[in-house]
């Protein structure tokens, strides 16, 4: 194997557990450069726990996690797109300044942003189509624009692996398409993507593989083989899911 095809992310029997006891276990999958994986499961299935575990925010309690072949992620290799609802819209900060935060890890404590950093911010804003709004106050943007702004922040860090936590929640169609375009472009640039979502249609549109989790890993593999009704049923047990723009309710013992 050459380094070009070595996995960017590889989990072998890994588990992440919150100090409170809840978590997600039995994680066994790998993501190659330029590959996009949809992380699918119902609310409370541990999707966010998995993403935060990869960032080192939730303790690893079993197995191995290799990022670019190493036990320790090098600085700035992982970009993260959090859910926007957690941020204070009254905070006095411009879109451009939010995107610049993506450069902080590379800058460290003692250096301040220079020309290369400003160029990276401009490229990231161009990539998500928000360059004209650079000087706007972040809190004044629409929900979809804020989401794309945070994506630009993740891009500005020039990651090899991008983690996205429910990026399509509450997005209107134009913002949704802009986000899908950006993800496709990232894949062409050999950036690997792990995106948690309820939206199976999205998984089919931009992802190469699907990872089903519900407290543990249920299935992992190429979209064509793994995105089956059986797997969806097993994973969701009576929760509404969206397929081909239709909402289905998967039969389960209780229903919601």
């Amino acid at each position: 194997m050459t380094s070009m095809t070595d996995p960017v992310l590889e989990l072998r029997g890994a588990a992440f557990t919150h100090p409170g006891g809840s978590g997600v276990s039995g994680l066994d999958f790998a993501i190659a450069p330029g590959e996009a994986v949809a992380l699918v499961g119902p609310n409370g299935a541990g999707k966010s726990t998995l993403l935060k575990g990869l960032l080192g925010l939730v303790p690893k309690t079993a197995g191995r996690v290799l990022i670019a072949g190493s036990d320790h992620a090098a600085n700035g290799m992982i970009g993260f797109l959090p859910q926007t609802a957690e941020l204070d819209p009254e905070f006095p900060i411009t879109l451009e300044q939010v995107v610049m935060q993506g450069r902080y890890r590379k800058l460290g404590l003692f250096r301040w942003p220079g020309r290369a950093d400003r160029a990276a911010v401009r490229r990231a804003l161009d990539a998500v189509g928000l360059a004209p709004l650079a000087k706007r106050r972040y809190g004044g943007l629409s929900g979809g624009q804020r989401q794309r702004g945070l994506l630009a922040r993740a891009l500005a860090s020039e990651p090899v692996l991008l983690l996205l936590d429910e990026p399509f929640n509450g997005l209107d169609q134009p913002n949704r398409e802009a986000l899908i375009d950006t993800l496709r472009r990232l894949k062409r640039e050999r950036v690997s993507v792990l995106v948690s979502t309820h939206d199976l249609e999205l998984a089919r549109q931009v992802c190469d593989a699907v990872l089903f989790v519900n407290r543990e890993q249920l299935a992992f593999g190429p979209v064509d083989e793994v995105l089956t009704l059986d797997n969806v049923q097993e994973c969701f047990e009576g929760v509404e899911v969206e397929v081909d723009e239709h909402t289905l309710v998967v039969p389960g013992h209780e229903g919601h």
Partner: peptide, 21 residues
């Protein structure tokens, strides 16, 4: 002054601050 960038990031986005280490 030394921690200003990191202080501002923590003020704006606590999870993001931890996520960058």
């Amino acid at each position: 002054g030394i921690t200003m960038k990191q202080q501002l990031l923590r003020a704006f986005d606590p999870a993001g601050s931890r996520a960058v280490g």
